[in-house]
Computed example of a mutant assay.
Amino acid sequence: MILAAAAAAALASACAPGPADKAWIHAATAAWRLQLRRLPELTPPADVTVILFDARCRLESRQALQRNTAARWTASRHDGQVLLADGTRIPATVTSFAGEGKQGGPTFVMALPSLWAAGKIPGGSLGLDRLTRAVLLHEASHVAQTALFERLSKLPKEEGLPEDFSDDSIQQQFEENVAFSASVEEETRLLFAAAAASDDKAARALAGQALAKMKARRARWFVGEDRRLGKAEDLFLSMEGAGQYVGYSWLIDPKGGALSTAEAMSGFGTRSKWWSQKQGLALILAVERLELAGWREQVWKTPHLIGVELLEAAVARSRNAS
């Protein structure tokens, strides 16, 4: 029994990801540190547990997402089920998510690129290595949105929404509504156009059109019991839009992904099929283009304004400044 236990311990300590995954971990954490320097408002809690895994190994670190601390990793074998910080287990398949954490504290969990490749997840024009780094930046950034998570956790009780209500629930409810879907698509197009406009007046006009359409859509369909969906949509637009922004802005940074805006947008910004991510990014970029002071604090620190409220404030500021 003692020999068997010693052998098992030696096997666990010898567990390590392959060379490509090791290189990716180094590059991905470097990308994260770059974004922390670029976005000082993006401040992760001090107690985030990071769990990465491949087909056989589980890695854990408490320092990987911290600003100025070298990451230390512990490695162990798993049996196809990966242990999380709260004691639950998940299958060792492609995934990437952050959680606010009740038991075990805030966490970030992600499958390493070797599992994405084994699962035949396409990297598209970015390639899988660069795409997965942008995904890590998006999901890891959520751990800094403590205030938004707190507001989200209260939604079911305050608004009478299901406990499993998510950032995709509104789309799942309305995506077969042709007029609703068409409005979301046009709103998103206008927001991206506002973000790309070289002229301040044009940017303000396009953002204003998008804002009017968003309000009209809500007035038409968020009625009766669905009136409660407006607050939920705003929360998820801020959360998912900010996450997409962290990944997208790294892709276009000369010190980061070093891509053109067109390459980053097609490969990541508009790649997602989910409204909350695509429209959320468009909204955040439009708000940034309209130079709303303090918008980063609103999405990462003190979210007094969320979603449409944030856009409305940006349009109003631009009008007053003209």
Rank of each mutant, 00 (worst) to 15 (best):
R67D: 07
Q35W: 13
R67I: 14
E60G: 02
R67S: 15
T69P: 12
R33Q: 08
D54P: 00
V50S: 02
D47M: 09
R62S: 09
L42Y: 12
A71R: 09
T49F: 05
T69S: 14
T43K: 14
R58G: 07
E41A: 15
A55W: 01
L34G: 15
R77V: 10
R33V: 10
P45G: 03
A55M: 08
A64T: 04
R62T: 09
N68D: 15
A75R: 12
R77M: 12
P45K: 07
R56A: 15
L52E: 08
L36F: 13
L42Q: 07
T74G: 08
A75Y: 02
R67G: 12
R58I: 10
Q66D: 11
R77E: 13
W73M: 09
R33W: 08
A64P: 03
R56E: 14
R33S: 01
R56F: 06
V50C: 00
P45M: 10
D47A: 12
F53T: 01
A64G: 11
Q63H: 06
A55E: 12
H78D: 11
A71S: 14
A70V: 12
P44S: 09
L42V: 04
F53I: 02
A70Q: 15
Q66I: 02
T43H: 08
H78N: 05
W73P: 10
